[in-house]
Design a protein around this nucleic acid. Structure first.
Lengths: 341, 341
DNA sequence: GTTAGCACTCATATCTATCGAGTGCTAATT
DNA sequence: AATTAGCACTCGATAGATATGAGTGCTAAC
């Protein structure tokens, strides 16, 4: 078992390492932190902490560096998660509320904020749109061959879908969209299946051929709502992180994040817990062994959910990042759920 | 004056340097390129080319490197601009046509294509929307406090603008937007000023108070169409360019490109010619001394214009990049002008 | 005008010596 | 029994010293 003193020494070592990025020695600790013991004592404790697996030594005769296990202990019991400042809160609120209504813009903006506040890489996904309830709907003629389908959820999120149609007349489109809205309003989008679209035909018997033409197109369009969209911001921050200054290391991470397929696996991997922290090897992806991930999920009306991920070096300010992730996650939940004050 | 042989030697040197990124020596040239003269002769010519300012020597006793002037000569008279392949053309066509209709998505997609085909950084701006003619218009209720104004140009470009309104009823919104469309259709968007909006009041006298309320909101919204939007893609390519492998150099460029203000100056700086190539110091921006810029403008119906920029190391495949920029620029012109086949 | 030959230059790579931060262990101290 | 002072030892980092070799400029011969 680990003693109280060992715990305090471990905390000091990790804090110092997070500050300096240098392996920390016993003398540094005894001088910088008021533990009331000499460097020799600390040296002995450090040897024990290494044996317990909390510390590592890059090579004999250098200082110690936290192991993944060490970080884990630090994160679980030592880090204190203060709430973020009032200023930050105000900026986040003003950037995410009352400005944006298109779901993808909202996710993008959230990712941008996350990456700016943490100076790390941020990824935000959009909750699957099809669990939301339909509140408004319009078909808009864009050209002779194209129509825009605009869906609005009861939570005030807008989604644009393009339809390719060779038969477009705004007057008819208005009629069709009004009718559709009249019996689809309030329905969740995933429930808008072919059967419910077929009702269109009953209601608009005088437009039979047009409706026949429209139905398969609508079917396709609704299918496209099933994909998960993800937005990454702040990739370039990787460059500015000491750990990855050697551009070879940065490349490995870039290459990983660039491949959307990787990202998808990665997003599934990231647990669905309210908030999760994964450190180095815990992520289970070789190219990210030098990284930590802080992720959270946000809910829309308690149902469908989107994901928020911050990726950075293991040596990050966990307390700060966690508080930012939490705050943005909650704000997104509110915004997507339509709670606007 | 420069001799024919010097020209051929210069061409060989620059080609080789573009391939290898290494200062090239006289022996390399005499062996790799069938010029029919010995290394000693080439050595003499190289000394002359250096005196003329076309080559530079990083240090005595290393090979030669092209100077900005050398690149300029190369670009002006040596590089051959082949057209891009049929496959590339097909991809570009399929990605830019019949899929996207929102102006910003289009620009984003174009920038993505550019950066993928060139492996360089690409920036695309949207032509000022306000020179286009209005073809369709809708006001859509999104929530109790928000309305979406959707504008469609005669060229099939869509623009969403959000309005904050505390008085929203879809029935009234429909009436207002129909009326607006009836007398604004065909008008260029910059001509839709307050005066023309005021006509609304005449036509919708029974909705007087609502129109009074709406007018200042619309005014603000239309003002927001004046800004130039720009989309950059492929920033991370900087990392993979040998010249900037030293991450300090990459940072300088990143920092420059990250600042939107810089980018604006930069976009103005970039000439309005059909196609322009600027090499190193010709750009006139210290942080980009090691870069070249290939830029082009595309027109919408011959009037308002957007910009396309590719930024990379001076040592780039000019012929290839120019052909890609040209092709995407022309395609964008067509798409924004509504020529869809 | 061209080329072979050679001395010279200088960035890069390799080796060596030194330095010093930090350790582990032992013996003295509390 | 726990703590600490002291000291020999380790090993990466840094600085010089030396070697390498690609490439040049110049001269003299062809």
């Amino acid at each position: 078992m680990i003693s109280e003193r060992q715990l305090r020494i471990l905390e000091a070592i990790i804090s110092d390492f997070i500050d300096t990025a240098q392996p920390v020695g016993s003398r540094t600790i005894s001088k910088k932190y008021p533990l009331g013991v000499s460097s020799a004592t600390i040296r002995n404790e450090m040897a024990d902490l290494e044996e317990l697996g909390y510390l590592e030594q890059p090579h004999t005769s250098s200082g110690r560096v936290p192991s993944d296990l060490g970080y884990r202990l630090y994160v679980d019991s030592l880090v204190n998660i203060h709430s973020i400042g009032i200023d930050e809160k105000e900026i986040i609120q003003s950037m995410l509320r009352n400005r944006i209504i298109e779901a993808s813009d909202l996710a993008k903006q959230a990712a941008k904020l996350l990456s700016e506040f943490t100076n790390l890489v941020a990824i935000v996904t959009i909750p699957k749109f099809n669990k939301c309830k339909l509140a408004n709907l319009k078909l808009i003629k864009v050209s002779d061959t194209r129509v825009l389908l605009i869906l609005v959820t009861d939570t005030g999120i807008v989604k644009n879908i393009q339809l390719a149609m060779s038969y477009t007349d705004q007057f008819i489109l208005d009629k069709v969209s009004d009718t559709m809205l009249s019996f689809l309003s309030g329905e969740t989008i995933e429930n808008i299946d072919v059967r419910s679209i077929l009702k269109l035909k009953d209601k608009l018997q005088n437009l039979g051929t047009f409706v026949d033409y429209l139905i398969p197109i609508l079917k396709d369009a609704l299918k496209s709502l099933n994909g998960t969209e993800q937005y990454a911001e702040g990739l370039s921050h990787i460059l500015f992180i000491q750990e990855f200054a050697d551009s070879e290391k940065a490349k490995v991470i870039f290459d990983f994040l660039r491949d959307a397929k990787n990202l998808e696996i990665f997003l599934d991997e990231v647990s669905a817990d309210q908030l999760s922290i994964k450190i180095g090897s815990e992520i289970g992806i070789d190219s990210l062994d030098a990284c930590s991930i802080i992720s959270s999920t946000y809910k829309v009306d308690g149902k469908s959910d989107g994901k928020i991920i911050v990726l950075g070096p293991k040596r990050m300010d966990y307390g700060n990042v966690v508080s930012i992730v939490n705050y943005i996650s909650n704000t997104l939940s509110d915004v997507f759920s339509g709670i606007n004050l």
